[in-house]
């Protein structure tokens, strides 16, 4: 029973985090931008949607959608710092991440005034009835409720994935891919590659914030520290997803990272079983990420030899090119 519950919880968490992974797929895989602002845009989405629901009376689904443009603004700020102010990628992300911590805290105060809260840093209330809370599921067993929520998450994740796939097939989507693949070409086509970087980061963080909003409604709580480690989680999901599924012909990048997020969350949930007090969660996070970085090539080779062969051809090609240039 414990194993079943852990699996279901892992699935639920993985599906929620799949949306962050889809965002980070844009910034990291497509744009080649390891964006650290994710750690703060995740709780930003959570606190904003919660405030909008409880203070401004927004319906729960609208509050989730509203997190998207808010996250976009934060992502655009990281992009602006990098593109216009020439700050390196990592530092631009760190600046946004750090600054947003205070923004999140300030927004949390809107929740504390009514005394719903356990502390200024987190908020938990039965009033936070989001899209996952319905009276009729109260009669279900614990597993039944979780399964119901997993079903809803599956639908949401599929919708986001399909929209993203559609976007990536547009001219704008292709310019985004070109910006990550060869910035010079975007310039040669008469466009400012910086604009596309800002756009990509905005979209990525919009998704991350939306995931944060989903998360707070899913667990009926908001926590300012919920963003900690989300960069690592998302990057790990993207990398493991691409390693395991990236070589399969009919599976595209977005599907691969969704399964990556699920695999990663399941692993994390099983590890947490060993740690009753939850002290070592972040350590597991870090170790798992390190293992993925060390072994992802071998994992990819194991899962798809043909994929591995293609990659070697590209590598040889590049080596050949370098030799010729020299």
């Amino acid at each position: 029973m414990l194993f079943l519950n852990t699996t279901l919880d892992g699935l639920k968490m993985g599906l929620c985090f799949a949306i962050i992974a889809l965002g980070v797929y844009i910034s990291y895989s497509i744009l080649d931008f390891p964006d650290l602002s994710v750690d703060s845009t995740f709780p930003l989405g959570g606190v904003c949607s919660t405030v909008l629901m409880l203070r401004a009376g927004f319906p729960a689904p609208i509050a989730i959608l509203a997190a998207f443009p808010i996250g976009m603004a934060a992502g655009a700020l990281t992009g602006f710092l990098h593109v216009k102010c020439k700050i390196t990628k990592l530092l631009a992300g760190i600046i946004t991440m750090t600054g947003l911590l205070s923004v999140n805290l300030a927004l949390t105060q809107f929740l504390t005034k009514n005394g719903y809260t356990t502390s200024i840093f987190s908020y938990r209330s039965e009033n936070l009835k989001g899209i996952f809370s319905y009276d009729f599921i109260n009669g279900f067993s614990r597993q039944g409720q979780t399964l119901f929520r997993i079903g809803m998450l599956v639908l949401i994740v599929i919708a986001v994935k399909l929209l993203m796939d559609l976007f990536l097939r547009t001219k704008m989507g292709y310019m985004l891919k070109a910006t990550g693949g060869n910035e010079q070409l975007v310039i040669s086509l008469g466009h400012d590659s910086g604009t596309y970087k800002i756009l990509g980061l905005a979209l990525a963080n919009g998704l991350v914030a939306m995931s944060g909003a989903l998360y707070s409604q899913l667990y009926m709580s908001y926590d300012n520290t919920s963003g900690n480690g989300k960069v690592v989680l998302a990057l790990a999901s993207v990398i493991i997803g691409m390693a395991v599924f990236g070589g399969i012909k009919r599976v595209n990048g977005t599907t691969a990272v969704i399964f990556g997020a699920i695999i990663y969350s399941l692993c994390l949930n099983y590890l947490v079983l060993l740690d009753k007090n939850g002290i070592y969660l972040k350590l597991f996070n870090a170790v798992l990420f390190a293992l993925i970085l060390i072994f992802h090539d071998r994992i990819a080779a194991m899962f798809n030899r043909r994929h591995a062969k293609v990659m070697t051809t590209i590598d040889n090609e590049i080596l050949e090119e370098k030799r010729r240039d020299a």
């Binding site: 097939r169 547009t170 001219k171 989507g173 891919k177 693949g181 010079q184 070409l185 086509l189 466009h191």
Partner: peptide, 28 residues
């Protein structure tokens, strides 16, 4: 420097063909 390595030949050509026009939400 003149092409996007991750994209196919067709995709690269489609990008170049659209030069001078806006790159919006039409299919590439």
């Amino acid at each position: 420097r003149g092409t996007v390595p991750q994209l196919t030949v067709e995709e690269n050509l489609a990008l170049a063909k659209n030069k001078g026009k806006p790159y919006r939400l039409g299919f590439a």
